[in-house]
Design a protein around this nucleic acid. Structure first.
Lengths: 218, 218
DNA sequence: TTAAATCTGTGGTTATAACCACAGATTTAT
DNA sequence: ATAAATCTGTGGTTATAACCACAGATTTAA
């Protein structure tokens, strides 16, 4: 268990919790490590989510279960990532998503009720844990809100502009975006080549300049 | 204060908390009532959110502050609604939104730290309060996720279809949607008349039938 | 009950984004 | 260093959604 401490310390759920405390805490929480092979299912759509998971090594995919049975990729989880937390906190009884291992992975599973209800020995960091959980959910909320604000715009140009402005920089300042073209297109929910077309047009119109991931608004 | 109990009991933040407990609880939380006139500001974009608010009477607008200074309506809060909770829980120091009274309103303000940190007298329902808060945030998360899943689709037809299927009914079953055309268009982030056009086409193509808010998928 | 206001559907036009195919650029692997 | 793989831009076509204007339907108010 202790060999995963480095990863766990980078997890937002355990932020501001000292490594010394971590060990006792994990015992309190009844944390268990689970290893899964590629293509193994960690949570099946329709089942009740019973654990909040933290990915230690490997890679997971969150798949959206279509009402016709088709699955589509919703998100990917990488090392240090947390999953099923919203489902647990919302008390969902039938998961709308399937969590599938894309590669051999190790995860840490935490019972939700143990996180929420102070443990008998009432470790002092328990309140911090709950605070972190609130912070994770609230943060995701704000991020999605902001993305919806962008994706909801009617034109591709408006989406790009708003996205760039969301960095809050001054005009003329260099913006380094964390996406390549394909990823940006996915984020904006538009076609990749349509995005490239529009970017070229915006450059021609003197609205922006860019090269690779570096953008400038005029 | 007590005259607002009926509204407070309908609030998700206080669900499963008995009215008897409510009074002591509100005292613990240092709840204060505030009345504002139309067009008064409850939270200004750029300011640090200090309280979680519950709207008792009246109506509030959440306005998105554009990076160019323009404000656009993001959401409306109606009686019993909660606001600024995600901002507080995420520890945001500069609110990206302004909360404005659309009419004379009364709100209850709760200090965030008091919600999170168990009060000295550690009232037994405190844990329930935190649980409710987690549930509110997690629920909003899932709802937004699901909406993003719909809005992100490339064609209007796909959006409508997915939206209708999200009700999870069998084909042929009657679906009563909670929106009129304009609201549905807003939800799907499309033009109202374009939506009407597409609905007509889908009916012609034998995919769906509808009349007012009643829809059927074939 | 009539008038006013709101909602919904529809025709028509135009702008725009999706889609396809491909080539040059860039990165990664060997 | 070369080949392979991936990423990005671009031309061209087509489907589609935005947009405008308006009329009939429906709801609300007086």
């Amino acid at each position: 268990m202790r060999k995963y401490f480095d990863i766990l310390k980078t997890t937002r759920l355990f932020s501001d919790i000292e490594s010394g405390e971590l060990e006792t805490m994990l015992k309190c929480l009844g944390a268990e490590i689970k290893a899964v092979d590629r293509d193994e299912i960690l949570l099946l759509a329709g089942d009740k989510p019973r654990h909040i998971g933290i990915l230690l090594t490997g890679r997971l995919n969150i798949l959206w279960e279509d009402y016709d049975g088709n699955r589509s990729l919703m998100a990917a989880v990488t090392s240090g990532g947390i999953f099923a937390e919203a489902l647990c906190c919302a008390g969902v009884t039938e998961s709308p998503v399937t969590v599938l291992a894309e590669a051999y992975s190790t995860v840490m599973l935490l019972g939700f009720s143990r996180i929420l209800h102070t443990c008998p020995s009432s470790c002092s960091y328990h309140i911090k844990l709950i605070e972190n959980m609130l912070s994770i959910l609230a943060d995701k909320n704000l991020r999605m809100q902001s993305r919806m604000e962008i994706v909801g715009l009617k034109s591709l140009r408006a989406k790009v502009l708003r996205y760039l402005k969301s960095f809050g920089y001054e005009r003329g300042q260099n913006i380094v975006i964390p996406f390549n073209r394909e990823e940006l297109a996915d984020f904006l929910c538009v076609d990749r080549s349509a995005l490239s077309h529009e970017l070229a047009r915006m450059k021609k119109d003197g609205l922006i300049d860019y090269k690779k991931n570096n953008f400038v608004i005029f």
